[in-house]
Nucleic acid binder design. Structure first.
Lengths: 128, 128
DNA sequence: ATATAATATGACGTTAACGTCATGTTTGCA
DNA sequence: TGCAAACATGACGTTAACGTCATATTATAT
């Protein structure tokens, strides 16, 4: 189904209309083409774009950070200068990500050892 | 230096007074003992507690989530019932953490491959 | 043709995690 | 003893990421 209006778009992408309009307002989503009437029309790409945004949000990126990288998945970024810029952004995000991964890993083993400690205690102190 | 007032505390922990008072107000930090005058007094433990909170924040936990787990590092949680409760919380956080780790890992390799793609393009299209 | 559903736009409300005054009391030092 | 620096408390302000009306126009089913 190509060329849908906001109702179908939000249903397929699992977001609210408010979210779509908010994203349009901050330039995260290109505001769909409008006909003679005031209505906006969207395509399949808008759906996948919204889904991609959702993925990146779950990772913990802010909408501003997402705006930096999401273009990458949907445009051709021609020219040397833009490509260099995107490359810089990507490298920064990679460094950030590695830090987060490390911190999360430490937290995980912290959790793990605490869990084991509690389990041992409970096993020792009652018949369960 | 044990038994300090808020000025030293915030300097050592690298947070503002507002932050300390906010944490006290939401029960994340025990509000330091007060003398006859209205002043609060804190100890070394408060410093390390603030630092622990900061670590957990960097991982992406909300203050509410932190309140759930931070006690663990500073109290004895005696009794079987409380221990069971904490154990439940820990297990939930472990599952959350594993999900985040997986998502972050995927994002990382996504970034990585994009970076390589851009690098190859730049190498091919100019002498650098 | 008309009632109902869908859309557009604007404005105010909300939560988290504090920042920033304003005002009043306490402490520490010359 | 006097006075600037430190502290306490209260209230209003701020940003992100939307939620929730209210109102007006357009689309659609009967």
């Amino acid at each position: 189904m190509n060329r849908m209006r906001i109702g179908d778009l939000t249903e397929r992408a699992g977001v609210t209309q408010r979210t779509v309009r908010y994203y349009e307002s901050i330039g995260l989503l290109p505001s769909g083409e409008r006909e003679g009437n005031g209505h906006h029309y969207y395509t399949e790409e808008t759906v996948t774009r919204l889904q991609k945004i959702d993925q990146l949000k779950k990772i913990g990126l802010s909408l501003e950070e997402i705006r930096d990288v999401v273009e990458l998945y949907f445009t051709d970024t021609s020219g040397v200068q833009p490509k260099r810029k995107v490359l810089g952004i990507l490298r920064r995000h990679l460094a950030d990500t590695d830090q987060k991964l490390e911190a999360l890993g430490l937290f995980r083993s912290d959790l793990q050892s605490n869990i084991e400690r509690f389990e041992r205690w409970l096993e020792a102190n009652e018949g369960d």
